[in-house]
């Protein structure tokens, strides 16, 4: 029986989604309406209980605004940097990679088998005041005291860019691969020099890839706390750090949960915006 087969076939992923997605999400939602009792323990509550929305009201306290603005700014900067670095790499591999194309892409993906946290620690070793880069600069006599690199916004954005770069390269590469090479020749044939052909042909034809890559980089960057924790200082506090603090330092799980829910709604709005843009692009004009 077909129905029986599909029921069994989808049972495992269904269970997986239920246990690891739906259940934690529901718990987070329930926690966000909860409170901390007099013994400091987090308690769940119904959304209709008195004071259930207190956590949400607290979240809109202006003191949290800078973290949010900073998160969005860093994420936008990261997206722009990833595009600036990732597009030329994807372009070079797609057009001139020849038989080594997929090997090169494989090499780009390889570091991502190592945990993001570990890779970010490597940057700490590089960028810290006594790190490899500063020691080298001092040894070379470029500077006598070293340059402050760690604990700056640039280090955080750099860490994010390194962490999520491949999510930009892959969709852009796929978009370039899908392109008919004759289209680029058509651009040149129709009097477009290299730059004009790139701007008027290649770039618009890979817009879908750029959009997808931007979303894939922007979304995790906004919620990231690893880069800011390891490479940043007190002045680079992001929303992710704020949430992490509520859970592990302030021990205020209900407030952390409320911030998480707000963050998710915020990112969903961006996501819907992207999906609508992508759909508009894909739909032929009438």
């Amino acid at each position: 029986m077909a129905g029986g087969f599909w029921t069994r076939f989808l049972a495992a992923p269904g269970l997986w989604l239920l246990c690891l997605f739906a259940l934690p999400l529901t718990l987070t939602l329930a926690m966000s309406f909860g409170y901390v009792d007099e013994f400091g323990r987090a308690a769940y509550d119904s959304p209709f209980a008195p004071g259930a929305l207190d956590n949400y009201a607290d979240a809109f306290d202006p003191i949290y605004l800078p973290s949010l603005v900073r998160s969005v700014t860093y994420a936008l900067g990261t997206t722009a940097l990833c595009l600036a670095i990732g597009y030329p790499i994807a372009y070079y591999i797609a057009r001139f990679g020849g038989r080594r194309k997929y090997l090169l892409i494989g090499l780009l993906v390889l570091p991502f088998f190592v945990n993001y946290l570990v890779r970010t620690y490597a940057w700490v070793a590089l960028l810290s005041d006594e790190g490899l880069v500063n020691n080298a600069l001092i040894d070379l006599g470029v500077t006598s005291q070293g340059i402050q690199m760690i604990n700056t916004p640039w280090a955080v954005i750099g860490g994010l860019t390194y962490g999520y770069l491949v999510f930009m390269i892959l969709p852009v590469f796929a978009a370039l691969e899908r392109m008919d090479p004759a289209v680029i020749e058509a651009g040149k044939d129709l009097y477009g020099n290299k730059l004009q052909t790139f701007l008027h042909v290649t770039l618009p034809q890979t817009r879908q890839g750029i959009l997808a890559g931007s979303v894939l980089v922007f979304l995790p960057s906004v919620g990231d706390f690893v880069s800011a924790t390891l490479l940043g200082g007190p002045n680079t506090f992001m929303v992710g750090n704020l949430i992490q603090d509520q859970f592990f330092a302030a021990n205020n799980w209900p407030f952390g949960a409320a911030l998480t829910v707000i963050m998710m709604i915020f990112l969903t709005i961006w996501m819907i915006g992207y999906l609508r843009a992508a759909a508009r692009e894909a739909r032929p004009a009438l």
Binding site: D180, A182, V183, E185, A186, G187, K188, D189, L190, Y191, G192, N193, Q196, T197, H200, V201, P204, Q205, R207, A285
Partner: peptide
């Protein structure tokens, strides 16, 4: 002389139309 400075034009086997442009803008490209 690079292709974009030659007074010749090509009709490609795959047509190689610019999918992001409408018919009018395709024709106006050159």
């Amino acid at each position: 002389v690079p292709p974009y400075e030659r007074n010749v034009n090509t009709v490609f086997q795959s047509y190689a139309l610019f999918e992001h442009l409408n018919v009018e803008d395709n024709v106006a490209f050159g």
